[in-house]
Structures are given as structure tokens and as C-alpha cells.
Write a protein that binds this DNA or RNA. Structure first.
Length: 359
DNA sequence: AATGCGGGGAC
DNA sequence: GTCCCAGCATT
């Protein structure tokens, strides 16, 4: 059919471009070498809503420390969270560990090679299942991520806003998937979106699809895909309590497994609300000194302004409640502290009494 | 279909 | 400051 022929032609063009311009990324198998499903999976989980630049070092660190999925399954969740600290979306790390355990127990340590079976594993959704099936096993699935949504919306001039346009975009992308080299095609499409068909100022002049792009023909490519307007996010306030023992240990607490920063460590704090609590209650009675610095951090759905109160103690026991630990100052870098909490650490350590100069 | 869930780089 | 990134789980 003519329509089918057109699709093949378009796919061939993209693959030819990919052969000449593919990015060299740590998780990408070399030409002619079979990809390792573990490598593909690990990179895909890390890359969810996360830029290539942010992922690279974490990917190398994880692979070096846990060379196989069995090694990762044997690790403790605590060690996995420590290694993941700073990368964000910590449910990914918890699901990563759970998935590794399941692959070992249910699949004899080998990742399943179908989209359906992959989809049943924790942390693997529609996109990631299709991506692994295509990239690791060369199955003809369309892996539709943010890049592909943008490229499809432009090539086909889809003016329906996201997320309503997703079903149509998925159909359009699936229709382009070649029977052979589906994995290369998936990666080519993402490379195209990341390097040429960028959100702002797409470089249409060097795009392999510039001739057939309807969005470009209509002069609306850069304005696509359309999206619902964003609502602005509120600000929340809180107080973090920096408790330093006279031997240099700092009081930490593990957060609950579910919810924001789930399973990660924190400097104990008040709840984070629109207003500070009327009666501030620290981990225990003490004389507190308020730091001048306010730690600011922005999460997905709120800004946080965190004041830091300091105190010192000779108390060796832990406060009432679960999850508390004493950790020495010099060991904090090894803890599962998310970026916000590392800001608190930096602020607290910077606010030391100055040594008075002699003379 | 909406919402919760991090962090950082590019502009 | 805004936008958005190789999205998923839950409701």
C-alpha cells in the first residue's frame, strides 16, 4: 500500500540519520553488539523524567557497584537509596530494588522479553516496557516518551493539547515502527527529539524529516505540542532541627516509606505547612539557636522555606519515636540524604562560630 | 483524568 | 523566574 510505503520511507530516513549521528551514551550498546537487558532497564528507570546529563554518573556508579541484576537484588534497600540520593523521584529506587528481586525470584535472573511481562514488574509502565522490549529485544514497539510526543505532534501537526492527544500520538508512532531495528528506531526518535526537534528553537534545517513535517509546513512546529496551562505552586514553611552531640554526631531520622522523599533520611523537622506551627516542638527540650540562612527548595508541587534551629547536647539516647539515628558529621555524605537535606547540612555546617583571629 | 512525586540544566 | 526532561503509581 502507498501509505505503508510512505511510513517505511520515513523510518528508513530516520535510521540513516541515526547511523550517522547517534549519540555515544554509556548505556547504549555498540553497533552489532547485543544490548544487555539489565543495562537497558537500569538506564530507562534512571532516565524517567530525568536528563541524560543528570543520569550518566549515577548509571556508571550503579553498574560498577552492582554489575548484574542478581547483585542488585542482593543489596539492601538502604544501600540502593544511598546510591540513588540526589537523583530524585525516590519511588524509582524502591521499585528498582523490588524489580531486581522479582526478576531473580520469578524470572531466574533474566528479564522477560515481552512488553506484557515487563509491564507487570514494579516501576515499569507503558513507556519503559515498550522501550525495553524494543531496545533490548528488538520487538516492534513504539516507546512514546516526551520527546516522541513532541516529534509526533509536530510531524503530524497535532493541535489537540496533551494529554488528550496521547492515544493518537501513540498510534502515529506505532505506525512508523519498522519490523527490523525497532530498538534503533526507538533510540533514533528520542535522539531526534533531544538534539534537533527540541522544545524551543528546533533545528528544522538539518532535520531528516523536515520535508514531511506538517507542523513545519504550517509554520506551527515550535508551538507544538500544546499543553494545558500550569497552575502556580504554593509555598510551605517548616523548621529543621540540627542536633549536634558533643562527639560530632548529628541526629537523623528516616522518613516513612510512602510519600515525599519516601524511605530517605532527613534532618528532623516540623511538618511543612502553609504556616509555621503555633507551638514548635523539637525532638527534645533544648536551647535553640536559629540560623540566619533559610534553606529554599522547590519540589514538584510546592516551594519550601526551611528555617534551621541548632542545639548541642550530651544526650546519647535517641528521642522517642521510630527511625532516629546518630550519624557522625563526616559520614553524612554517605547517607541517603536527598538534595534538600544536603542543603540543610551545608547551611548548618557553614554556620559555625568563627575562630577569632589573634592580635 | 488528576494528582503526587525531585532535581537540575537551559533559557 | 519558566520549561521540561527516555514516566509511574495511585486514586
Amino acid at each position: 500500500m502507498a501509505e505503508q510505503g510512505l511510513h517505511e520511507d520515513v523510518s528508513v530516513k530516520l535510521l540513516a540519520w541515526y547511523d550517522a549521528h547517534a549519540r555515544d551514551l554509556p548505556w547504549r550498546a555498540k553497533r552489532g553488539v547485543k544490548p544487555d537487558p539489565y543495562h537497558v532497564w537500569l538506564s530507562e528507570i534512571m532516565l524517567q523524567q530525568t536528563t541524560v546529563a543528570a543520569v550518566k554518573d549515577y548509571y556508571i556508579k550503579f553498574l560498577s557497584r552492582w554489575p548484574t541484576v542478581s547483585d542488585l537484588a542482593k543489596a539492601s534497600q538502604e544501600d540502593v537509596l544511598r546510591a540513588w540520593a540526589g537523583l530524585g523521584y525516590y519511588a524509582r529506587a524502591r521499585n528498582l530494588h523490588a524489580c531486581a528481586i522479582k526478576v531473580v525470584s520469578d524470572w531466574n535472573g533474566k528479564f522477560p522479553d515481552t512488553e506484557e511481562a515487563l509491564r507487570s514488574l514494579p516501576g515499569i509502565g507503558p513507556y519503559t516496557a515498550a522501550a525495553i522490549a524494543a531496545i533490548a529485544f528488538d520487538r516492534p514497539h513504539a516507546a512514546v516518551d516526551g520527546n516522541v510526543e513532541r516529534v509526533m505532534a509536530r510531524v503530524y501537526a497535532i493541535e489537540t493539547p496533551l494529554p488528550a492527544a496521547k492515544p493518537l500520538i501513540k498510534l502515529k508512532a506505532q505506525a512508523l515502527v519498522p519490523e527490523k531495528r525497532a530498538g534503533d528506531f526507538a533510540q533514533a526518535l528520542m535522539d531526534l527529539g533531544a538534539t534537533i526537534c527540541t522544545p524551543r528553537s528546533p533545528n528544522c534545517k538539518i532535520c531528516p524529516w523536515t520535508d514531511e513535517c506538517k507542523g513545519r509546513a504550517l509554520g506551527i512546529a515550535e508551538s507544538l505540542p500544546r499543553k494545558a496551562p500550569k497552575v502556580k505552586i504554593p509555598t510551605r514553611l517548616g523548621i529543621a532541627f540540627w542536633v549536634e552531640r558533643d562527639d560530632g554526631h548529628i541526629l537523623l531520622r528516616q522518613r516513612p516509606q510512602k510519600g515525599l522523599l519516601g524511605g530517605m533520611m532527613e534532618i528532623p523537622s516540623t511538618p511543612w505547612e502553609a504556616k509555621l506551627p503555633r507551638n514548635v516542638a523539637g525532638p527534645f527540650e533544648a536551647e535553640w539557636t536559629k540560623l540566619k540562612t533559610t534553606v529554599e527548595h522547590t519540589f514538584t508541587h510546592f516551594h519550601l522555606q526551611l528555617n534551621v534551629w541548632k542545639t548541642t547536647t550530651t544526650e546519647m539516647s535517641l528521642p522517642d519515636g521510630s527511625g532516629y539515628r546518630w550519624v557522625h558529621k563526616d559520614e553524612l555524605t554517605h547517607e541517603a540524604l536527598p538534595s534538600l537535606m544536603r542543603k540543610v547540612v551545608v547551611a548548618a555546617l557553614a554556620d559555625r562560630p568563627r575562630l577569632r583571629k589573634a592580635g
